[in-house]
Design a binder for these strands. Structure first.
Lengths: 356, 356
DNA sequence: TTGAAAGCGCTAACAG
DNA sequence: CTGTTAGCGCTTTCAA
């Protein structure tokens, strides 16, 4: 009933040539004459030949495949990065094997092992929020598999990294807030053990201190990068009757959690509590009030990561480690634009992306 | 410099046993004694062995790998489905090869061919909005590769499908709108050539007609499933000075496009124009006003699709084609709750998902 | 220009 | 219980 897949040998038999000839012809090897190449291609097309990649990759040394490991996928930041990675891979004739760690270090490790077993040509990874053991990354390096850390970068040397300038982004945002009159500023910091949490948190603290304001430790809360954490952290402060005037959140899901809590309690933004977050998503401009943020250009992160990885793959041993730093920009919408007033700013009206 | 990967033969040599013994031991084959199995496992662990999946899959007949093709990824609906698919795959020890067609039929076809070449054990696909040629799906069937169509389903027989009950969902939503007093209802219908567009559109038309209201053709606009289309369709009606009272959009991104346009123009929802859409996303409850919608349970779609596919893989020829229909539910928030009034409903306060 | 031989790393069938 | 023999489908020498 079901067709068996056509193999090189089927084609060879039909044409009374050797398997090798067919193999070469299909890959436009100069050994084979134009004429036979053409014939062979035509026939294999007719027969519905499709190469067995397992076999091809077993004898060849490269798979034209890139492994990508991310912590989450139903998340604008990663979704957007992934989309771009897929596009760049497609243009360069690479396949992507995407793995999702769900912020779980154990799972992440298994995924990397699987990628090694799959003989991917290179790996791009954004580590989980709980990853502490970097041994597996050493293994990857030892295997000679090109590796790029993206956004969430561990503290190990000799690896490619593409990171966002978290520190400066946070610093400038807080500086802006101070300039418009805020003093009582809190920070929902996520995990400060991960570079992104650390950089953003440090930017916050330094900006405060540089402006002669001491950080209130009650308002500096660690926890996670998701909504639930923002929701709970806000409720905690609210119950303690100890709200700052402005909260700077480490990611935008954390800010959404705050919105949610604020809505439920019946408070108002920005009158009762004002907000700004690290990370952009097009939905933020549709929130009410529209959420201001520090924008990380996801497509650039994706492009840079792919660019570095592909070059590393191409050059192999000759490649020199690259550390890329991506700049952020402050996008002011309707939050964090004036202390204790709800003045919609004249700021950037976000245009819709063209390709939708 | 770089370590070569350890193979079975390396382990065999070190232990003075045959390759086969090692191979069997590592897979807990009953042939091998507990003791040697234990020893072999210990040693290969120490040596850092990781199986070569290319080789394994070439000699075995299955790859424990599932191919998934979707039109977009940076989109709540698909992102959410994909996340769940990854989870279910992980639990069942399958790997996922995810391909993104970007709503492009040509690309979709190439992706499917690649998946066949990769010898995936099965394929789940949500077809692109422009897919017309179904020949490739026949090829998949002929190859005997289990196939499940998810959400967007082509009109061909003899295939597994997991679809949402678009018709009933749309019908009930419109019925609700009519009940609360709306008569001038428009519909941004996307592509009605695809099942989801067709079903939703038909539900809309039938509900209207069944309640004795004729559909105004000016208010029934086709175009696409993305924001840009919603944005432009609304502007078109606005410029023509021909707005209905309520617009039912085929997807939630289309509704977001409308929000965007409405904001820019300076109109208000729901006073000037009211909205309801097909498809839920947690951000909708944070919009102002919170957007009412017809909820499609993404996790159930993902689970059902995987369940059917895995069973089809397990049973092979003995499997009987399944057609699954997923029910929707109406979630009323702050739009489409009362004609020409902005009354926040007492409706479902959406709780946060636990696992975030 | 073509093809025969060898092998990529692994598994399945059989025999000892 | 263990190992020998044959491949899986393809590519890469190397000889004709």
């Amino acid at each position: 009933m079901k067709d068996k897949a056509i193999t090189l040998s089927d084609i060879a038999q039909k044409l009374n040539v050797s398997i090798v000839t067919v193999s070469k012809a299909l890959r436009d090897h100069p050994d084979i004459s134009k004429q036979t190449t053409k014939l062979i291609k035509k026939v294999s097309e007719e027969m519905g030949y499709s190469p067995n990649l397992m076999a091809r990759n077993l004898s060849a040394r490269n798979t034209n495949t890139i492994g990508v490991v991310i912590p989450k996928i139903a998340h604008f930041f990663f979704g957007s990065i992934i989309e771009k990675i897929y596009d760049v891979a497609f243009e360069n004739n690479y396949e992507i094997i995407l793995m999702v760690s769900q912020e779980n270090a154990e799972r992440e490790k298994r995924h990397i092992q699987t990628l090694l077993s799959m003989k991917v040509d290179g790996i791009i990874i954004s580590i989980s929020q709980e990853t502490k053991d970097y041994e597996i990354f050493e293994t990857v390096k030892r295997r000679g598999v090109p590796l790029v850390f993206m956004d969430r970068v561990p503290e190990i040397g000799g690896v490619n990294t593409v990171a966002v300038d978290d520190y400066t982004g946070a610093y400038k945002a807080i500086e802006h807030a101070l300039n418009i009159g805020y003093k009582n500023i809190g920070h929902f910091a996520g995990y400060t053990k991960i570079n992104i949490g650390y950089g953003r948190s440090k930017g916050f603290v330094d900006a405060m201190n540089d402006h002669g304001i001491e950080v209130n430790p009650d308002w500096l809360i660690e926890g996670g990068f998701g909504e639930k954490y923002g929701y709970e952290a806000f409720l905690k402060l609210y119950r303690e009757n100890n709200l700052p005037d402005l909260i700077f959140t480490v990611t935008y899901p954390v800010a959404l959690g705050v919105y949610q809590a604020v809505h439920e309690i019946g408070l108002r933004i920005p009158e009762d509590i004002d907000l700004i977050c690290f990370g952009n998503a097009k939905m933020q401009s549709l929130l009410s009030p529209a959420l201001s943020c520090i924008d990380q250009p996801t497509h650039m992160i994706a492009e840079k990561s792919m660019e570095i990885l592909l070059e590393n793959i191409r050059l192999g041993e000759d490649f020199e480690i690259k550390k890329e730093m991506i700049d952020t920009s402050l996008i002011l919408r309707e939050t964090c634009v004036a202390k204790n007033k709800s003045i919609p700013s004249e700021s950037d009206v976000q245009n819709l992306p063209a390709g939708k």
